[in-house]
Simulated assay, not measured.
Amino acid sequence: MTQIAQLTEAEIDERFRIVGARPVAFLLAGFAKENDAFSVHFRDGDEMFLSTLLAADAERGRLIFDCSGSPETNRRFLACERSAFVGRPGGVLVQFHVGQAREILFGGSKAFIVPLPDSVIRLQRREHFRIETPRVNPLEFFGRMPDCGLLRLVVHDISVGGIGADTTVQPAGIETGLVLPNCHFSLPGDSRDMFFSATVRHVRELSSRAGTRLWRIGLQFNDLPTGDQTRIQRYIAKVERERHELI
Rank of each mutant, 00 (worst) to 15 (best):
G99V: 03
V92W: 00
L139R: 01
V98W: 05
D44H: 07
A29Q: 13
W215D: 06
F106D: 11
L187G: 00
A237K: 11
F16S: 14
G227H: 09
G45D: 03
E175S: 03
R126Q: 08
D228I: 11
L78F: 02
L123G: 01
A56Y: 06
A172R: 14
D57H: 02
L246S: 14
R88A: 03
D13N: 15
R241L: 13
S83K: 04
L150E: 15
V94M: 00
E34F: 13
I12G: 11
V155S: 00
R126G: 00
G45M: 00
V92D: 05
M194R: 07
V203W: 06
D36S: 15
F16L: 09
M48L: 13
F129V: 02
I158E: 02
R75D: 09
Q6E: 11
M194S: 04
A111C: 10
G90N: 11
F195R: 13
R213Y: 04
I64H: 05
G164Y: 08
L63V: 03
P138S: 08
E240W: 02
E205C: 03
I131T: 08
E72R: 10
R144G: 07
S191W: 06
V114N: 02
T230P: 06
H244A: 02
T8R: 15
T212W: 01
G177V: 14
V86E: 04
L178C: 07
A37Y: 13
E11W: 10
V154A: 14
I12S: 08
R144E: 08
I64F: 06
V19Y: 10
S207T: 14
P115C: 10
R204C: 13
L63D: 04
D46R: 15
I131D: 06
A172H: 08
F141S: 02
S83P: 01
A21M: 05
F142E: 10
